[in-house]
Amino acid sequence: MTNLVEISNLNFGYGSRLVLKGINLTVPKGSLVAIMGLSGCGKTTLLRLIGGQLQARDGSVTVAGHHLNDMNQDELYALRRRLGMLFQFGALFTDLSVYDNVAFQMREHTRLPESVIRDLTLMKLNAVGLRGVQSLMPSEMSGGMARRVALARATALDPELILYDEPFAGLDPISLGVIGQLIRRLNDALGATSVLVTHDVQESLKIVDYVYFVSEGVIVAQGTPDQIRASTLPFVHQFIWGEADGPMPFHYPSRTMSDDLGLKEV
């Protein structure tokens, strides 16, 4: 099995602050891989590096055999046509209807006649169970429905690689389950490969094939969902069972309490 995404010895930072340090990561073709970690640990940054929206400082990011570091804008755009991405809150185009949102890429990138676009769009909407809302505007839908429409839009051109940025954020438990199942089903039905960035442990462990744990810019653990559940690493244990204190301290690093309150030992 070949790898669709390969990241080796990747360093990335904003200014002098390194956000990602020595990341090594592979995503085999056809698999669904999750990148988990706390908010602000660099997961989304990692996803943007795979999508080519950010450039690695050192190391390499390879997607479908192309090194992203030495690609120009046109080559990058050509590669992105084979990619689909679901943004954190859907990022639907608010000035277009649901139908036009899903049809957007087909109209921009292909010269298909409108009747074919119509059929394809309705099929994509049907796959997420929302053929009935095609004429609504994004503002008229609930968050869960908007996320499903965004999913239909991300898969509109049958991408080889689908990137998900926090697909479960801000959803009720039912929508959460629906989205989780859709992600798995779409991945298998399209023969695509998916990378999922999330902090929702329980839902993602149900659907993914492999998990990477990122903490403070480094990969601290990896494995299949079963291996992760059985992990004895304190950090992973704390993360999965949502304990308040542990290796990830409750207190943000600071001066000692007595210093802050001006209490001096005499």
Partner: peptide
């Protein structure tokens, strides 16, 4: 607002400038 709601990023990821 399109930028704040990541619509511009989404467009870029769809290979549309």
């Amino acid at each position: 607002l399109m930028k704040a709601t990541e619509q511009l990023s989404a467009m870029e990821m769809m290979a549309i400038n």
